[in-house]
Nucleic acid binder design. Sequence first.
DNA 1: GAACGTAACACTAACGGTTAGGGTTTAACA
DNA 2: TGTTAAACCCTAACCGTTAGTGTTACGTTC
Lengths: 202, 202
Amino acid sequence: MPPGRRERKKAATRQKIADTALRLFLEHGYDAVGIRDVANEADVAVTTVFSHFAAKEALVFEQDQDFERRLTGAVTGRAPGEPLLPGLRRETHALVRHCTGSGAAPIWRMIDASPALREYEDSMRLRHAESLAAAIAADPGLSQTATAARALARFVIDAYSVAREADDPEAAVDEIFHMIEAAWEVAGAAPGPRGAVPADGR
Amino acid sequence: MPPGRRERKKAATRQKIADTALRLFLEHGYDAVGIRDVANEADVAVTTVFSHFAAKEALVFEQDQDFERRLTGAVTGRAPGEPLLPGLRRETHALVRHCTGSGAAPIWRMIDASPALREYEDSMRLRHAESLAAAIAADPGLSQTATAARALARFVIDAYSVAREADDPEAAVDEIFHMIEAAWEVAGAAPGPRGAVPADGR
DNA sequence: GAACGTAACACTAACGGTTAGGGTTTAACA
DNA sequence: TGTTAAACCCTAACCGTTAGTGTTACGTTC
């Protein structure tokens, strides 16, 4: 797909590093594999690893940008006048299903076993919540406060996070989104600085 | 107050380390001060610092256990039949007021300037959310699902976190808690595995 | 198509948080 | 008073991460 040979080589190097890292991590455990091991096995220099990935933990969450894009896309890519939450609920369902699928099980077992990886995922989720809040706040069809937008974004991310660990993840998504819909309905009503009337500036 | 001399000396050492660290951090910046600097200035060994604090970042959030105790206390320490959310809202107000007070301003400025500190605070909040969820789930007067309890706990922590950064923090607490109350009212109603019993104690 | 600019990568060496190992003091208690 | 163990010290490392400095080879331009 990418036209230049340079970009293709770069992508190949990145992919080789990520694949090698994940394989070594799953074989010997995340903590038992050092960055120098990954670099040697992938036949690159240590500095090259860090030019592709910001930190060791990022090797595990290689495709987290898809996550973010899909969530914000559920906000920005909907038809005018269409309500916000059904699309977010649908996307959350898809993400939870993807994470609890059988193929991802060993990876998540590894993540749950490593405090560093869990912490990294936590702050990753908060970044996603920020992006989602920005997308919600930028929607011209919504009249809620910036505070309500940020709160809603956090709630949605929470839904994903809590549901992923629940006994019945799919049911948990629905359960939490039921709560979120109630919260979103009253947002901007009584105690916000903004009036409940749409299209009101400031 | 603590009876033993040993415990008093230990507490004094811990306090001396924390005070020294905070002073150096505020004087020269968090990144510019190393653990070895803190240890030298406090006249202890580096290993002693880490026997009192799990990580460098923990030196800044010295009294985070109070935070957790106050939140869970708002759940466990209320009169029987008393509703859950007013107490949590009151406590969140107090915490936000405490964090946005003028005395804490330089500390929060330092935290906001350091990615490591921000990330540490993020995962700290999640720990608190877990404790809060456990306290809520353990309350015999509540009939909600474990999933709903975890979601509510996250929402409350979110309220604190979002409100702390809002233009008008106090108003933001009320705004978000308005949303949370709506969410909590419908929790356990339609799609939960547990019965929709609206319950005894109001 | 030769020359140039630069992006990607390599190598070395270090920095800083963190921990293991092993030893010393001293409070607590029988 | 003697014993135990907690708190502390010191040294030496480990490991993630980065700065500094070249080197290669792709893309571009004349």
